[in-house]
Design a protein around this nucleic acid. Structure first.
Lengths: 353, 353
DNA sequence: CTGAAAGCGCTAACAT
DNA sequence: ATGTTAGCGCTTTCAG
């Protein structure tokens, strides 16, 4: 309505306070450069009355570093990632940073485009769950832009200056130990094909866990679905996979007494099919999931699951990344997140032979 | 290793191509300003060989508009919101925009801080699921920054220049009609307290739906939990709420034959408790959820649910918002997303009377 | 302690 | 068709 004057710049504040823009900047940007109390007060009150808000674009251009970080992952609608992003964003907010969210949908092209775009926006760091097969272009990009890249869910040392390690291998080993202590001797693994890093780690944990307990390894106890479709509808695929593998599992001889599933969704598909086949969980088969998703407690019976703490991981890694950015140094550390077995009612102790 | 020259600016390209920065800008920024084919070619090849990438900060500052949009919502880990964000981000990417994600955790203070921060970053628009009680400051902010605000999940016309309407009221009415046509005459509603807009709409839909079918309204068929805790652990709360209300529901006389739940999580809690009480779904009680979350098909029996299409909503609203931004006009439209009843196995036809 | 001036990288008048 | 110049809003030498 009123003749719309645009928002105030630092010059307007300076003028109103009767000082130079430089002095105004020094107090308004929280610099430790000495300014007289008098001037400081006048500047602050001018800023207040003009409702001054810095234009972050100006700041960023001047310093050539964005106050955002990027997070690139396959799909935010995956609960694991949305928890992780929530953690990362919470940390970012605390440190005055924003979070640019990027969904690759597991497309290598999209992943690279995002990376490039983030570089063009001069972000100082990015948390990346990569699907790239050829990492050379990514590395080059990261180098020429001094982009800090933190790998997630994987370790590709050539491109990731740092990584967050979920130690899922240890988590699975612990779960096997737990089953062993509850009398289980025939333990199966149920997964989609172990092509990505995470699943490979789970598999290693499974095999090493058996070994650590002195249990024999049987190839037919590793149940992998034949195909894989990860794009949209990922959850549904995982669920169907659990159902499919249920049948294979029931045909095994001798039948396992316990099974570890690659995630809670798969476990829930398994349990549903088992119910249809009138096989009771946990009476006839014990089940352990991975992720401890919010719905782990919603299935019947409530699911014992290996928690990976994605929120915590996201929080820690974002905080460390942003510290590196603001302190203007490289970020090469490693964030360790310990897995934790959350015990509910899907595992039953059995008599040892 | 090599003496690290910084990344190339448009000046470097111009110099290498033997033209002025202005000309270089004209071709590199895709302007339609006429440039000779010769010069254009030289500029392009210079850019190529120098690996030139525009510094978006420069562009943004110059034009004083960011190439990002903001999305402010309570909690990305809520599957409804993460689907919506996925849709919004997909649209943004298509249009060359980025997405700044903000989680308010239902804190009014955080909401305002985010809004302010986005303004300082000169974003042209924001998708907002607001929890604010006092909207005056938000309105003021939006005005002085010409920020386009799109309301979600609510209609607060004073602050939202536009809104996306999920028509959940109609969705619930359709569900009631569906139950009616399957012979149900005693239909209950199960919800947490109807304080926020969405739940109020569901309640209206429930009451109007009954009326439209000529069914009597009974106050005791509206089951609202007493308390509410929405911060973290929201999902768990909803689940427990479903369990709690199951008991209340079973005590009703005459007992309803069908119930509509405020969301799938609540429905799943209800079903779990019902199972513990040996009340069969759908034989003794039919259940309809809201959201059609990915796990609706995972509960037993698979849940009939009212789908809200958050992905589509997010996609459409972000696309429209960004169009408004790039065309430099206000955005006052309304996005309509039609609900859809997804039929599975949690509703059973019954003999009338 | 303060201010003038330069410049981050880009684009858009306004010449030519 | 091209180049010169100015300036977006901010910070930061550098001189006073």
């Amino acid at each position: 309505m009123n003749a719309k004057k645009d928002r105030a710049t630092i010059h307007d504040v300076a003028k109103k306070a009767g000082v130079s823009p430089a002095t105004a900047s020094r107090v308004l940007s929280g610099s430790d450069y000495p300014v007289s109390e008098n001037a400081r007060k006048r500047i602050l009150s001018a800023a207040e009355s003009l409702q001054y808000r810095p234009n972050l674009l100006g700041q960023m251009l001047k310093s050539s570093t964005s106050r955002d970080i990027g997070v690139i992952l396959p799909n935010i609608s995956n609960p694991f990632y949305s928890e992780l992003v929530l953690g990362a964003e919470t940390a970012a907010k605390q440190k005055g940073f924003g979070l640019l969210l990027c969904n690759t949908l597991r497309s290598e092209l999209r992943e690279y485009e995002y990376l490039e775009n983030l570089c063009q926006k001069q972000v100082g760091g990015v948390i990346l769950s990569s699907v790239a097969s050829d990492i050379a272009p990514i590395k080059k990009l990261a180098d020429t832009y001094r982009l800090r890249v933190v790998g997630l869910d994987q370790s590709i040392p050539e491109i990731t200056h740092a990584k967050v390690d979920f130690h899922i291998r240890k988590g699975v080993m612990d779960a096997i130990r737990y089953l062993y202590e509850n009398g289980h001797r025939r333990i199966a693994l149920l997964s989609s094909p172990p092509r990505i890093f995470f699943r490979k780690e789970v598999r290693k944990g499974y095999e090493e866990g058996l070994q650590a307990c002195g249990l024999p390894y049987r190839e037919d106890y590793e149940l992998f679905s034949a195909t894989e479709r990860e794009l949209s509808g990922g959850e549904i695929y995982e669920f169907e996979n659990g159902k499919l593998c249920a049948d294979k599992l029931l045909a095994l001889d001798p039948r396992p007494t316990a099974v570890i599933c690659i995630n809670d969704i798969t476990a829930s598909g398994l349990i549903q099919r088992l119910g249809e086949r009138n096989v009771s969980v946990p009476d006839e088969l014990s089940v352990i999931g991975i992720d401890n998703s919010f719905f782990a407690r919603m299935v019947s019976p409530p699911l014992t699951s290996i928690e990976q703490s994605p929120f915590e991981a996201g929080f820690l890694v974002a905080a460390a990344l942003i510290d590196a950015i603001t302190e203007n140094r490289a970020f090469t550390g490693r964030i360790d997140v310990e897995p934790r077995l959350v015990i509910r009612n899907s595992v039953k102790p059995i008599r040892t032979l």
